[in-house]
Amino acid sequence: MGYFTLTRLALKWALSKPVTTRYPFEPRQPVPGSRGELAFTKESCVYCNICAKKCPTGALVVNRAGKRWAIDRLLCIQCGCCVESCPKKSLSLTPSHGTIAITKDREWF
């Protein structure tokens, strides 16, 4: 049976810097290797439609005739399935979580 078992830990942390960050004033540093926002490179895309077919949530739309590519940010689950299947490496997941999607429409590129 012990008493005041947390005292040592509490004193140690009372004297050291907090592990939390003051978030809105101090932006969160993205962890390298994290699966964040999906980035699209228009220059290398050949509009093959593979990413749209592979997407498990159906977040991607490819218009081959109009050479347009679109994503519904609220549907995307950042799984990286499209990144793996893209033959031209036009897609990538950035470590940053990006801006918050607030509308339900598609973002066209």
Partner: peptide
């Protein structure tokens, strides 16, 4: 306070997980 300390340690584990798996 013990709750906070447990989750402080958990955060270290989560950092490893995020860096290796992406989530």
């Amino acid at each position: 306070s013990l709750f906070m300390h447990s989750w402080r340690v958990r955060e270290r584990v989560l950092k490893i997980i995020e860096a290796t798996t992406g989530g």
